[in-house]
Design a protein around this nucleic acid. Sequence first.
RNA 1: GGCCCCGUGGUCAAGCGGUUAAGACAUCGCCCUUUCACGGCGGAGACAUGGGUUCGAUUCCCGUCGGGGUCACCA
Length: 549
Amino acid sequence: MDYKDLADLIFPNAKEISYYEEKYPERNLKEGAVVTRFAPSPTGFVHIGGLYQALVAREMAKKTDGVFFLRVEDTDQKREVENGVTGIVNSLKDFDMAPDEGMISDTEEIGNYGPYKQSLRKDIYEAYAKYLIKQGKAYPCFCTPEEGEEIRKKQEAAKIRPGYYGVWAKCRNLTVEEAAEKIKNGEKYIIRFKSPGREDRKIKHHDVIKGNVDFPENDQDIVIIKADGLPTYHFAHAVDDHLMRTTLVIRSDEWLSSVPLHLQLFHELGFKAPKYAHIAPIMKNDNGNKRKLSKRKDPEAAVSYYKEEGIPSDAVKEYLLNIANSTFENWRRANPEKSMDEFEFNINKMSVSGALFDMVKLLDIGKTVISKMTKEEVYEKSLEWAKEYDGELAEMLENKEYSLRIFGIERGNKKPRKDIAKWSDVKNSIVYMYDDKFLNGDNTYEYAKISDKEEINKILKLYIDKYFDINDDKETWFNKIKDLSEECGYAREVKEFKANPEKWPAHVGDVSTVLRVSLTGRQNTPDMYEIMEVLGKDSVVNRLNKAIR
RNA sequence: GGCCCCGUGGUCAAGCGGUUAAGACAUCGCCCUUUCACGGCGGAGACAUGGGUUCGAUUCCCGUCGGGGUCACCA
């Protein structure tokens, strides 16, 4: 009995690997094209760090005319969530980052290198595991998880490196006969890789992001096929990324320390190893300590959060791009109108250490992104958001014509307003433009400098009776407010007032504030002339009258 | 603990042997302005630390300290 017999005993039905090698040939892509992937577990949850990786992967594929695909790593059934894949696909779509190939829902996929769901690739992993066993590069291991635990305890007690390796790898030295005997007796087993490595030897690795990193060789006989018959991450990674012809593996840097193992696996399997780019995770400051953004503790860890909050997906992407390549910021300043797709992304310039997530900066980008939109875009996007998350807002936006007039205030000029960072800000920034909301609200106005009730009444009455005319152009409109100020005993020019503040109790700006507050309930608003125009004569008069008490 | 990675203002970060050590966000002040936002101008604010190497170190080497990752039949 030899290795081949043992292999046949374990995987009697597995195909020869040549079958798969032919089925999944080298991709016919142009020189320099990069094949990347995003390979999450089907939890339905996409972490902002995952989106970051996917963004980088997609950028690389896009700029080289390569391929970006989505593979689902569901070899751990515990992680499986119903409709998880669809959730992930939809999240990518929300960010306009749908993959070129791979899974497109829980059951569907596109592309010629599938299945793209690992649980559907069992036959493939078995073929390659058999291939290794046949060469004596993998073996069945009969140790139970409990035994494994015991071994580790012993190692810990003796203060030596834990793991299944060297003398601790009990089953590695079983003869094929012994192994076959146990199998025939029905003993449970898993398949382990027989590592040819030695811990006292170093390997050199060049990571696309981290640069040169030296490691001790891997000497752990890691399991490649688990008791449930599915492969471990390591084995699936090697087999899949080889067969799917991935050329650049972009993943979180928690995988960096597995590189020696992975390289060894690729080598023993006879595969050409891909390049690796290990991305530093996005961190958060937690009481002075840096830690990864946590799914459990930090709502902003989930990409769904950004959608719910109405932070534009472009803002999130620009923020991420900004973390990835700080030159993006300069490029953006120089090219304010260009699409971010035109930015020349450079993976080599990525930071080696994890950046602290900065919501303030993200929101700042959100303001800029929204400020550049047309009123129609602002309308469409906020309506889209409102339909899902804010019924009241959606209702307010039903009158499209009126909404567009509101969104048109101070928009489209060279210095557009930057007061909306996310769609959830919209309601608050426009509510007072709706008579039914404004007039029925409990409006206890808070005036500023001029706060005397009689004085306010006087100003308002005079304005309504003598000065207000909805047809005035802006200049005469404001001149009238100056006249009003003068008539009521205030300075008609702010400059004059500042030169001689003792001459008047207040100035035209303060009078304007009285009108502004009476009209909108707040001291800070966009251009008041435009607001009056949009509100219309009746509403203005009505509001001012209501403010007289 | 072993192994690996990292350490420039509050944050993201350029710089990689000789720089007045960029820029952005945040912050403060001023200007613009009927308010706010925008915009403009300006301020404060950093090379973790100790040794080397060197004519000269933020840049190179070593130690220390600090931070992070990893050591599963999870990915």
